[in-house]
Each structure stands twice: as C-alpha cells, then as structure tokens.
Design a protein around this nucleic acid. Structure first.
Lengths: 232, 232
DNA sequence: CATGAGCCCCTAACACTGTTAGGGGTCGGC
DNA sequence: GCCGACCCCTAACAGTGTTAGGGGCTCATG
C-alpha cells in the first residue's frame, strides 16, 4: 500500500486535522451529494481519507455524527437585521430558516431526526428570545412562540420535501407531480368527493413559497393577538 | 420442514388471506413493537408467517409498504362531530390527529417520510375542505388552511417525539430530560445567554399538551382573521 | 536512551438490511 | 393432460452500523 505514508500527513491538501468539526463538514458534503439515505459511515470516512472504524474514535456512533451535522447546518444561519418591528424580523427569520433547510439536501429530515442542542442552536434561541421579549411578549409566551415558530418551519419544509423525494424516485419533476395530482383529484367521483374535485387546482398549486407565506402569516397573526394593542 | 403444509393454509389461526391490507396491519404491529428503525421486511414477513422475499409479490418495495402503513394509520382517524363552530371542530380535529400520531410509535416519522395519497387521506381531506368552505373560507384559503393544519400537527408531533427517542436511548424519562435541560440552561454564562438563563423554566416545561394547545390556538386565531367578522 | 502512555488508524468480523434471480408447487380452465 | 396464473421458497449480492483487537506514531517521564 504505497499511499498515505505516516510521515506525509497530507497526501491530498484537504487533510488539515480531522477534528469533530471536520467530520461534520465532511458529513455535510456527503449529505449534499448523496442524500440522507446515502450518508454512511464508510462514505464519511472516505471523504476524510480514513476507514470507517476510525470514526468511532472521534464519535460515539452515527447519531452523534448526525448531531454534529445538525449543529453545523445551523451554524450557517445568521439572524436577520434587528431593524423594523418584531413581525418583519421573525418573518425574515422563518424565511431564512426555511431557505437554509431547502438549500442542503434532506436537511429537514436531519434536523427533525433528533433534538441536538448544539452551541449554534443555543445562540439562535437566545437571539430569538431576546427579540420576543423586547417586542412585549411575556416570558412564557416568548418561550412558546420560539418553539412554535421552529416547529412550524421545520414541519412545513419536511412536508414540502416529501413529494420531492417521491418525484426523484419516479424521475418526474415537481410540476409533473402537481399536474398528475390535479388530474387525480379531478378524476375522483364527484358525488363522494365534491370538494376535492372542485378545489383540485387550489389543492395542487405547486407554489410552495405562497403556501409557506400563507402559513407564516397565520402564525404571526396568531402571535400578534397575544400582544397588547399598543405593541400591535 | 414439517410445518406449514400447503393443505393446511392456517397453522396458526392468524393467517386469513395475506392481502395488502393484512400486510399493512402486520407492519403496524411490528412498528408498534419495534419502532421504525426495527421495521424490516423480514420481520413483517415473519409476522404474517412468510419469508421476506415473498412480500415482493404483493408490494413493489419497502416504501410502498410504508405507504400502505401510512394509510392504515390514517384509517383509524375518525372526524370529530360536526357540532359547534368551525373553530372547535378543527380544534378537535387537530387534537385527534396529534393523539393518533402519539399513540403508535414513530407514527409521525412514518407519515412524514412520504406523501402517500391513500384513500383514507382523501376522505379526511374531503371532510376538512367541506367544513372549511361551510365556515366561510374562500376556496384558496380552505386549501391552504387544510394543508397548514396538517403540516402544523405533523411537524409539532415530530419535534415533540424527537427527544423521546433520545430519552429512550439514554434510558431516562421525559421529566428527567426536562430537568437536565433546565440545569443546562441555568448553567450557561449569564452574560452571553441572559434570556436562556432567565427563561430556563419556561423553555423546559415538559407539558407538551400545553405547548400544542398554545400553537394550535395561534394558528386558529390566524385563520379566524381571514374570515369576515360575521363568521367570527 | 528506554519505556510506557495516549492517541489515531487499521483489518476482520458480526449480524443485519433491502432486493433480485430463479425455481418450485398448487390451483382453475381448456 | 397441459398451461398459465398465482404464491412462496432458497440463495445470493452489495451494503449497513458497530465492535474487538492490534499496530504504529508521538511525546513525556524515569
């Protein structure tokens, strides 16, 4: 085995140290390339130029690696500017979080798999709570609201991405899926499913941004109703 | 191999026909017993008294079995009574859906894994749309609202169940987890995380029912704001 | 200098997983 | 009798997470 001499610590230039952070970044690359189903210990090990069993020196098991990966994902989230009212601030917050989850493949499934209270998550929670209390929410409401917004975005993106994986399996695009679903609804017996038939177009509208915006506005409306009128 | 004579189609009394529905019920039992991670084709096959490869006669692959399982889960959901206003009807709807997802192990993960438009889901959608339109929502709003409520409950339960699986791994209860999380928050440096320290109790309150009720009321408030005042 | 401790990686293996190929046997119908 | 549909089987393939045990490397201590 001529490669990888012990006295040449970097055969490629991409072997800086092999810390836990480096493992998380490698896992992130594998996730981006092969998806969550293709994210195996052996592939992550190969990504850092090592065999699979060696990972267990740095990490207790795969779940812990996924926890590190989760926090690495959250690390690329930066809070929106603190300008304007609380409502636009959290509007931007939720949109950024959704965009982050959509940008890397299967990110929603990864973060949904386990509650991993890493340092980045703590920072985000701290920032959100600070803004909510400044906006006039009570302590209990602020804690609830922060949890609600996180669960909403996470759940929405997860639901949103599910048919995408189905479309990948079938080799069809999202638009085709929407059209097929519309045809399916319209083809239902109108006497037992009158509403599905009538609302086929509305139900299968493929504009997920609009659906998200709708849901987000409802949640923000609901939160606003908690505030005394002078805070809006 | 003396067992399972071809002329004795039922050695046990629990082999009625081996239809796709029977497979879904068997998968449901395995899920309840071993969780989603322990739900393998071989175990489902053993549950119906058959070898793994035989399942592929009835089912294209594991994902299709999970789709059947999803619709079987939804089959045990019955819509709430049509009495009272739209708001209490959907309040009951969401609570029943959450209870259903909580009742069988990893149910939220299963339904979140794939959008499977089975017959039971279609029936529930039809019923929800009918109530929403009767309440005065526009067609587009009714479609959006139905989607939003489903995503909210599903996302909430998924988030809610994540730390439970962590607790199972660690062998600790949910209360212990909450206490430990509270200690963790209180132990943070107060100058960089003042809000997390101050709201430690609120953030780690283990009453998930209250959290769900809070979020649900916000969403319902937001939806109510769409209606003209005479409909509330 | 020698020795040992700690660190980091390796090979080999175990018990699984989903899935396919190919082969039987048991029926009803011609 | 024969044929095809139906349903199940064995055997295997490639891949999974994880562990046991071993082997060098580096560095501080005796």
């Amino acid at each position: 085995m001529p490669q990888n001499h012990p006295d040449t610590p970097g055969t490629d230039d991409t072997t800086p140290a092999l810390t836990r952070d480096a493992l998380a970044q490698a896992a992130l690359r594998v996730l981006q390339r092969d998806g969550l189903a293709g994210l195996s210990m052996r592939k992550v090990a190969a990504e850092v130029g090592v065999k699979a069993a060696s990972l267990y020196w740095h990490v207790r098991n795969k779940q812990e690696l996924l926890d590190l990966l989760t926090d690495a994902l959250l690390g690329s989230a930066e809070p929106p500017p603190r300008t304007g009212g609380w409502r636009e601030q959290f509007h931007a917050y939720c949109w950024r979080y959704r965009r982050l989850l959509l940008d890397t493949r299967d990110a929603a499934k990864v973060v949904a798999g386990r509650l991993a209270p890493g340092p980045h998550l703590l920072g985000l929670m701290e920032d959100q709570l600070d803004r909510l209390r400044a906006a006039g929410f009570s302590d209990a409401d602020a804690a609830m609201a922060s949890y609600l917004l996180g669960a909403f975005v996470q759940g929405f993106v997860l639901q949103e991405q599910s048919p995408i994986s189905a479309a990948e399996v079938l080799g069809t695009s999202r638009r085709d899926i929407a059209d097929a679903a519309g045809d399916l609804f319209r083809a239902l017996p109108a006497e037992t499913f009158p509403n599905l038939v009538a609302l086929a177009d509305d139900l299968t509208a493929p504009d997920m941004d609009a659906r998200f915006e709708f849901g987000l506005q409802r949640v923000l409306d609901g939160l606003a109703a908690l505030l005394p009128p002078e805070h809006r």
